[in-house]
């Protein structure tokens, strides 16, 4: 028996599949967020150097990770859309951008409110912070570019090119703390060495990261369903949807 994966590459079949997955991802995100917030705000002890200010880490790091991951995922879908002219890939890229922008904003905002008590400033033109701000502008630029072009297929191509060009910023953000010795600290968690933070703090951060991941997946899927109905309205499969008939 062969499972035809390409079946789900059509909006008409992906739409109901996404609809079934969304509540599970929202549910998992909410559950993990409750556990993660409990671990982060109640169970984890006060840091001996930073006091309680460090607790911002439980939203700052997951949001910052996701802001970069989501950009790479969006760029991959854009590359597929440009290379193979596939509708669903372009819609995926379109659906991810706003959630990516939200995560980038959270990373910057929480970083500012962590920087003030620990570094004495909300903002500095530090390499990590500046490149993350450019990431926010890239997301907003991609969203604005799409809104400026009426033909969705032309918008797909233009946004795809811009998204791929912007990928150059991702390694700059990631390695900025190594390349330039400015204000932002290096990473406490890496693939090559043991994490330099207490186990309970790391646990809380990882739980919150999974919560953020599941939230981002749920929100992107919810958005791609909206995009599908918007872009394919007039198509028979959209007209047959129960939620369209009852709207």
């Amino acid at each position: 028996m062969s499972l035809n994966w390409f079946r789900y590459a059509s909006p008409a079949t992906f739409y109901p599949l996404a609809g079934k997955m969304i509540p599970w991802f929202y549910g998992a995100a909410a559950l993990l967020a409750v556990i993660g917030l409990y671990v982060g705000l109640v169970v984890a002890p006060t840091d001996f150097q930073q006091g309680d200010a460090y607790r911002i880490i439980f939203i700052h790091v997951p949001a910052a990770w996701l802001s970069m991951f989501l950009y790479v995922v969006m760029a991959c879908w854009s590359a597929l859309a440009l290379g193979f002219n596939t509708r669903l890939s372009a819609m995926m890229a379109q659906a991810i951008a706003p959630t990516g922008a939200v995560m980038t904003f959270i990373a910057l905002w929480t970083g500012a409110f962590w920087g003030r008590p620990t570094w004495g400033t909300y903002w500095a033109w530090d390499a990590r912070m500046t490149s993350e701000l450019i990431l926010l502008f890239l997301y907003l630029g991609i969203i604005a570019l799409r809104n400026a072009i009426d033909d969705p297929r032309r918008a797909d191509r233009a946004c795809g090119v811009l998204a791929l060009t912007g990928v150059v910023n991702i390694p700059i953000i990631y390695f900025s703390v190594h390349w330039w010795n400015t204000l932002h600290q290096g990473s406490s968690v890496s693939l090559t060495k043991a994490p330099s933070m207490a186990a309970i703090m790391l646990t809380g951060m990882l739980i919150m990261s999974f919560a953020a991941w599941f939230y981002a997946i749920a929100a992107s899927l919810a958005r791609i369903r909206i995009i599908m109905v918007e872009r394919e309205r007039g198509a028979a499969w959209v007209g047959e949807l129960e939620e369209v008939r009852n709207a």
Binding site: G51, A53, F105, W109, T110, R116
Partner: peptide
Amino acid sequence: MNGYGFYIWSAYGAAALVL
């Protein structure tokens, strides 16, 4: 939060608001 309440709740509150 041992004096850090303003910073912590500004960060968490804004994140919740944006979501």
